Computed example of a mutant assay.
Amino acid sequence: MQVTEAATLLIKKIEQDYRDDIAVVVMMGSHLYQDTHPKSDLDLYFIPKTERGYQLGFVFIMQGIGFDFWPISWERIERIAKREERITAIITEGKVLYHGTAADLERFNHYRLMALDKRDQKRLQHLAYKQLQSAQAVWFDCANASTTTEARRHAISALFHVVESLALFNGTTIKRGRGKLKTEILAMPFVPDGFERLYDAIFVSDQTGIIKQSMHDLIRSTRSLYERHHDRLPKEDFKSLATGFYEELINHYHKIERAVTINDAHTALYVAREIENELAWLFADSGTTPPELPDLIEAYDADHLDVIGQAAKQHQEMLVAYFTSRGVTFRMFENEEELEAYLVSL
């Protein structure tokens, strides 16, 4: 029996008993590319329209091959299309084998187009940075691994994030992955320096230190790539980006002030770094050189929090002065009457 015949049987069951319950059935994987072997599995998922539709999801083994006919909600499909999960290719590359109605197919194709849309380069770049940050977090475990096995285990986990980050930065998706992954990355327009060498070392080296260093260097090289090409994105006007920014940031200064008062060193340091991160995004997105501001992390001393407290006050005053010099205004109300008057004017 051909593996793909299993799909035919499943669709026949839908047409007979679940026509009103299933929106689409989608095939993924090696069968799409005619790149199979005798034990290639069949990757199928379906989108239910009713609670009853979920009952059709099941896993089984036939002729020694595992099958997973798994349900996935429209809500999750939308999240995947927005690149909130790493499995975007199940939408962009999947082949629709069945659709209940024309509206069902149209809805699926809408999410396919959404997943393929790379016009919002700024959003894709932000998502790329987030994935790279996740890779850095995982690399911490890699760096502390005591054996080659543990180092390789954590390096592979970090690689998942790095390759998804690169796909986002390049405005594309990982289509095949695994054994085809290196070829996919190398074919992208923007590739980190030394990618192939560092990537291969993680798989072939038997030395713990080399695996750790290769993963570290790959993350650093990827970050350098992003920094070099950040200017390829259109910059937004600083004034428009900064409008409304301080009205939210002011509460961070309040948190540092409170942390100093109650001697909460943890909060003081966390918030100081949060302020730095928020400002870094603002200035990077606008292509603006940031002004000289007090270094809040340098001012941090767990035993003398008053130092960071004073630095935060100075930081706030200087930032307000800078914003004002750039024509940024702040929406402030002295009391409820002023707020009410503003609401009336809307």
Rank of each mutant, 00 (worst) to 15 (best):
A81G: 14
W70V: 06
E106P: 00
A135D: 03
I80S: 03
R76Q: 11
V96P: 01
M114V: 15
Y98L: 02
D120Y: 10
R76Y: 12
N109F: 06
Y129C: 10
Q131I: 00
R112I: 07
G66R: 13
K118E: 12
N109D: 13
L97Y: 07
V59W: 02
I90F: 03
I87R: 04
K95R: 15
D68W: 00
I77Q: 01
G100R: 06
A115Y: 01
Y129D: 10
L132W: 03
Y111N: 03
A137T: 09
I77N: 02
I61H: 14
D104W: 05
D117I: 07
E78D: 15
R107W: 01
R86W: 05
M62A: 12
E93W: 00
M62Q: 15
R76V: 13
S134Q: 10
Q55I: 04
F58E: 11
Y98G: 02
G57V: 09
Y129L: 15
H110F: 12
Y111L: 10
L105Q: 08
F67I: 00
L124S: 02
L124W: 02
T101P: 02
L116V: 01
K82S: 11
R83S: 09
D117K: 03
D104Y: 04
E106R: 13
R76G: 00
R112G: 09
Y129H: 11
E93Y: 00
L127A: 11
L97C: 07
W74I: 08
A103L: 12
I91V: 12
I80N: 01
A135Y: 05
G64P: 02
A102C: 00
R123H: 05
A115V: 06
Q63W: 03
L105N: 07
Q133Y: 11
Y129M: 11
M62D: 14
F58V: 01
F67S: 01
S73K: 07
D120F: 07
F60I: 00
R107Y: 02
E78S: 10
